[in-house]
Design a protein around this nucleic acid. Sequence first.
DNA 1: TATGTAACGAACTTATTTGTTCGTAGATTT
DNA 2: AAATCTACGAACAAATAAGTTCGTTACATA
Lengths: 129, 129
Amino acid sequence: MPDVIVNNETFYNPVDFVLKKIGGTWKIPVLWRLRKKVFRYTELQKDIPHISQKMLTQTLRELEADGFISKKTFAIVPPHTEYALTEKGTKAIIIIETIRNYGLELMKDDGIDYEELVREEVKAKKKST
Amino acid sequence: MPDVIVNNETFYNPVDFVLKKIGGTWKIPVLWRLRKKVFRYTELQKDIPHISQKMLTQTLRELEADGFISKKTFAIVPPHTEYALTEKGTKAIIIIETIRNYGLELMKDDGIDYEELVREEVKAKKKST
DNA sequence: TATGTAACGAACTTATTTGTTCGTAGATTT
DNA sequence: AAATCTACGAACAAATAAGTTCGTTACATA
């Protein structure tokens, strides 16, 4: 495996290349939400737990620069922006799903029932409102 | 998506879980080499460009702790150890291959012919010997 | 006797990623 | 007139990941 250098970034192998593009803590949560519908900035922020404004902005900028998402700006006040998956982004969703399913298996091996945890969380949220 | 905490580690989603297990710079290169044959410590070190002793050891320890690889020690001097994929590790190879193939596509989109780069590197090595 | 060997551990430094805090525009609502 | 709203930029701090250097075991060979 050679070192591949593109735009000042070095990749050791094809998997590394993918992870530099859609890896990190926040890219997947963003892409995953956009798979079904268009989101506004604030919607993403509200929907993704723990994400900071800086990381959301940074993540969106990088995904846009790499062609996974598109941005539509409405020049009104207060501002309005919409983020959507591109075709390239849609392709990414397919392998994200594969990795996700594998993750669910791995968690099961470790005795974690993820679906159950999600259900519990939904219940907890309902109670608190 | 809830926060899942296992052994003091927090995961935001199933993909995150996978990446904490087999992500990072060096786990994939190690697993990838073990897919076909057993390797000794020094063999891995020689075969994986740029890896430091510390990162190799750390990577092997973590992969072993998570059940992806097994370690066989021969109590002789100088020491002899062999690392091999477990069944769990073999399963991991399958999705690594999927990600890898996607990576090759992505690189092509960016005008990078990875296979060609590998061929060039092999040639360069032959020349230098 | 000095040197080499395989597989590391431990301490420390550097680099990369993530997170926190503060500030801005300009129309709209109180 | 002051506060609110949305979508950020910028400076700085903290946390995590990766890399560097030095030391160790205990036998075999030059």
